[in-house]
């Protein structure tokens, strides 16, 4: 199974790599990174000063505060990139094969439906990671330039969390891709899902139960944001602070993210395996 899936995933990745969509998304993320680098190198002190009362005159900001604000700024942009990347790659991966009839090329080969699905997940996931890593690499390089040292270990933690988010988003986007027959509707459907439907659902939950809506769906999606924004998620409530997020809170958020991944994976598998027009 692994050999077939790997062969197909490498092939799909090759197709992505040479596609216009991949080039555009890499350029877009690079330009975003460049903009953030310029902001960070030339305006970091000005941004930090916004957090300090005007009555206090500070000549030299402590490195820790500068680092916190730096991470805060980059993470607040980075959190939206996985959604954008998977909208390009994962949300069209199955639907475009159905639309272009390419899926029949694979269904008449000695491969299982699971192998095909796994290769699609793998290729979309890797393509999304590569594009998001362009931005994260620029964040890393800019950090080196500004602080003349390597980022703290939390940076590695942040990258890991981003990869987890990309994986969840990939699976969620592929659910759309397996439901929608027209390839073009996949990205639109997925972005609408994240921008509108998740908010509507959380608002509904909030109004029905009186709970803080942010906990249910948005918390899990904003995992990286929370890790680097140092926002402590107490039960149902956010509390902002400049101190680092606790290990337990981070673990809780990772659990929620994994739960989403498993749920989406189950839906994706059930939907795709039941498609009548392909074996």
């Amino acid at each position: 199974m692994i050999w077939n899936s790997k062969s197909m995933a490498v092939f799909f990745l090759k197709n992505y790599r040479k596609s216009s969509a991949f080039k555009y998304i890499i350029i877009l993320f690079f330009l975003l990174g460049l903009l953030m680098s310029v902001l960070s190198i030339f305006f970091l002190n000005s941004i930090v000063s916004e957090f300090v009362p005007s009555s206090i005159k500070i000549i030299h900001y402590p490195k820790q505060i500068l680092e916190d604000i730096y991470n805060f700024a980059w993470a607040s942009i980075a959190i939206y990139l996985p959604v954008l990347a998977v909208a390009f790659f994962a949300s069209t991966s199955i639907s475009s094969d159905l639309e272009s009839k390419n899926i029949y090329q694979f269904m008449t080969m000695p491969i299982s439906k699971e192998e095909y699905l796994f290769s699609k997940i793998l290729s979309s996931f890797v393509a999304s990671i590569i594009s998001v890593l362009v931005f994260i690499a620029m964040q890393f390089i800019t950090y080196l330039l500004i602080f003349r040292s390597f980022p703290p270990l939390a940076f590695l933690n942040y990258v890991t969390v981003m990869i987890l988010i990309i994986f969840t988003d990939t699976i969620a986007a592929m659910v759309f891709s397996s439901i929608i027959k027209k390839g073009d509707y996949g990205p639109l459907g997925f972005i609408l899902f994240f921008l509108l439907i998740t908010n509507v659902i959380s608002l509904l939950i909030s109004s029905m139960s009186g709970l803080n809506d942010s906990f249910i769906i948005t918390n899990a999606q904003r995992l990286a944001y929370l890790v680097f924004l140092n926002v402590e998620p107490y039960f149902m409530v956010y509390t902002g602070s400049l101190s680092s997020i606790s290990f337990n809170s981070e673990l809780l958020l990772i659990y929620i993210q994994i739960a989403y991944t498993v749920a989406f994976l189950f839906i994706l598998y059930s939907v795709f395996m039941r498609r009548g027009e392909v074996r």
Partner: peptide
């Protein structure tokens, strides 16, 4: 070995 429908194939390979 089968050719079914009219597949568009993958553009960039």
């Amino acid at each position: 070995g089968a050719l079914i429908e009219n597949p568009h194939l993958y553009s960039y390979v």
